[in-house]
Design a protein around this nucleic acid. Structure first.
Length: 234
DNA sequence: CGCCAGGGCCTCA
DNA sequence: TGAGGCCATGGC
């Protein structure tokens, strides 16, 4: 068994399946009480898909907890809606998503993406071939490789591996020599069968490990894969 | 108080 | 193509 697969198996055994991406269960509502995005929700409508896209943009270099608050506010105002995003003033949108940080940039990105979705609907994107959809997403200002791949994998269930800061940190420490986003992505995609469920679960496990164990200051004695790691401390 | 989080764009060599 | 500055809140 290759090492990439071995690490996945070990993490899965240790943490169990993760159930990403967190989504508001009924696809968002404007009720009185807060509706919170949670893990393990089965995606069943376009509003939930749009919520994932919005979350992918809002979580750029930002703790998910802060994004969660912003999504709750967006749902309260019924803004998980392409037309509403087009109509709302950028300043008001920025205030609504304030908790997620970089709110001016992100408000612009959300409106920008809404314009894009007027031309290429969610339905069209969903039916598009993976690499064509990826190129299209990457051409949008505000959508870089990680956000594009998160959208493809988590919103559209397409088999592409998402690389994030955790992935680079963890696998560099383990001993892999890849440097760029594309190199890391190729590492995973060349060593795993191209299955959206597998890529989904693996990335989620990486985040779990990166958040709690393989932090900036790693807790190697608590790490489930420390026997596979070159940089193990102690 | 300082550090950092599920990046991406822009500028300048 | 690579390094560095910038964006900004909230949790710890």
């Amino acid at each position: 068994m290759n090492k990439i697969r071995k690490i996945y198996n070990t993490l899965l055994e240790h943490y169990g399946a993760q159930g990403w991406w967190p989504v508001t269960p009924i696809g968002g509502c404007s009720g009185e009480k807060d509706v919170i995005p949670v893990y393990g929700v089965t995606i069943k409508n376009e509003k939930q898909i749009l919520e994932i896209i919005i979350g992918a943009i809002l979580t750029q270099n930002t703790a998910w907890k802060n994004v969660e608050k912003a999504i709750i506010e967006l749902n309260k105002k019924n803004l998980i809606d392409v037309n509403k995003l087009l109509i709302i003033k950028q300043e008001e949108l920025a205030q609504t998503i304030k908790s997620s940080g970089y709110f001016n940039q992100k408000a612009k990105k959300l409106k920008n993406f809404a314009v894009f979705l007027k031309k290429y609907s969610i339905k069209k994107l969903k039916n598009m071939e993976l690499n064509n959809a990826r190129k299209l997403l990457l051409s949008i200002n505000g959508i870089g490789p990680e956000t594009a791949d998160s959208i493809l994998l988590y919103a559209f269930n397409k088999p592409i591996f998402v690389v994030d800061a955790y992935t680079k940190r963890i696998f560099s420490r383990i001993g892999f020599k890849e440097k760029t986003y594309d190199e890391f992505q190729a590492l995973f995609m060349q060593n795993l069968e191209h299955d959206a469920k597998l890529f989904n679960g693996y990335h989620a496990l990486i985040v779990e490990l990166g958040k709690n164990i393989c932090q900036k200051k790693p807790l190697c004695d608590k790490c489930a894969i420390n026997n596979l790691c070159e940089k193990k401390i102690n």
